[in-house]
Deep mutational scan, measured.
Amino acid sequence: MATVKFKYKGEEKEVDISKIKKVWRVGKMISFTYDEGGGKTGRGAVSEKDAPKELLQMLEKQ
């Protein structure tokens, strides 16, 4: 499965596409929420050019 690499609050993070719950576009950025486990929801964003094609496909399906 594909992963998304991004920075959040200065920390490098990587999340599996299957854990992503919601995806939306903000200008040229793709924002998303994902399941961190333990009932927590994380947030992240990547630029449109750095987003994996699976993430862009999720955006188109909504």
Rank of each mutant, 00 (worst) to 15 (best):
Y8L: 03
L56I: 12
A2I: 14
K5E: 01
G42C: 08
S47C: 11
R25A: 13
L56P: 02
K61F: 12
G10P: 00
M58F: 05
A51Y: 02
I20P: 00
G39P: 07
P52K: 02
K49T: 14
Q57R: 05
K22G: 13
A2Y: 04
T33A: 11
G27T: 11
G27Y: 14
S18A: 07
E48A: 07
K53W: 13
K7L: 14
S18P: 08
E12K: 06
F6S: 02
V46P: 00
E36L: 13
E12W: 14
K49S: 07
G38L: 06
E14C: 08
E60H: 15
Q57M: 14
Q57F: 12
F6V: 02
M29P: 02
T33W: 12
E48T: 06
Q57D: 08
F32A: 02
Q62R: 03
K61W: 14
M58Q: 06
S18E: 15
K21C: 15
E60C: 15
K7G: 04
G38I: 10
L55A: 01
W24A: 04
P52D: 03
K21F: 15
V23W: 06
G27N: 13
E36R: 10
G39H: 11
V15F: 01
K40M: 13
A51F: 03
G37K: 06
K19R: 09
E36Q: 14
K53M: 13
M1K: 10
T3H: 03
E11L: 04
S31N: 09
K9E: 07
I30K: 00
K28L: 10
I20G: 00
M29Q: 08
K22L: 15
M58A: 10
T3E: 01
E54R: 04
V23T: 13
E54D: 08
L55D: 00
T3W: 02
K53E: 15
V15C: 04
M1G: 15
K7E: 05
M29W: 11
G44C: 02
S47I: 11
D35V: 13
E11W: 03
A45M: 09
D16A: 13
G44F: 03
K22A: 15
K13G: 02
K53G: 12
K5C: 03
V15Y: 01
V23G: 04
K13T: 04
K21E: 14
G27L: 10
D35P: 09
I17C: 09
K13W: 02
M1I: 09
K5A: 02
K13Y: 09
G37T: 05
I30T: 02
E14Y: 03
G42T: 05
E60A: 15
G37N: 10
S18W: 15
I20Q: 00
K61G: 09
D50W: 13
K40E: 13
E60Y: 09
A51V: 09
S31H: 14
L55Y: 00
K22W: 15
D35F: 09
E14F: 03
A2W: 02
K53N: 11
K13V: 06
I20N: 00
S31L: 12
A51D: 02
K28V: 10
T3Q: 03
G37W: 11
K22F: 15
E48H: 06
E48S: 06
D16K: 05
G10F: 02
V23P: 02
Q62Y: 03
A51C: 05
K28A: 07
K7W: 08
K40I: 15
K7S: 07
A45K: 06
K28N: 07
A2P: 11
T33S: 10
T33P: 00
K61H: 12
E12I: 09
I20S: 01
V46T: 11
V46M: 06
K19Y: 14
F32W: 01
M1Y: 12
L55W: 08
K19I: 09
K5N: 02
W24F: 06
K21T: 14
K49W: 07
V23C: 12
K7R: 09
P52F: 02
R25Y: 07
Q57K: 07
T3P: 02
L56N: 05
S31P: 07
K19D: 12
M58D: 03
Q62D: 14
V4E: 00
V15L: 03
V46A: 05
K21R: 10
D50N: 09
K53P: 08
Y8N: 04
E54S: 05
Q57T: 13
E36H: 09
E54I: 05
K5L: 03
E11I: 11
G42I: 06
G10S: 03
E11D: 04
F6M: 01
V26F: 05
K22R: 07
R25L: 10
S31I: 05
E14P: 00
E14M: 04
K22D: 14
S18L: 14
F6C: 02
S47V: 06
D35C: 15
L55M: 07
I17D: 01
D50T: 10
K28T: 08
K61N: 10
E48D: 10
G27A: 08
Q62F: 04
K19A: 12
V46Y: 01
A51M: 06
K7N: 06
V4S: 00
Y8C: 15
A45T: 07
G38V: 13
Y34E: 00
G37E: 07
E54L: 09
Q57I: 13
K61S: 12
I17V: 11
A51R: 02
V4R: 00
E14K: 03
G10T: 02
F6W: 14
Y34A: 01
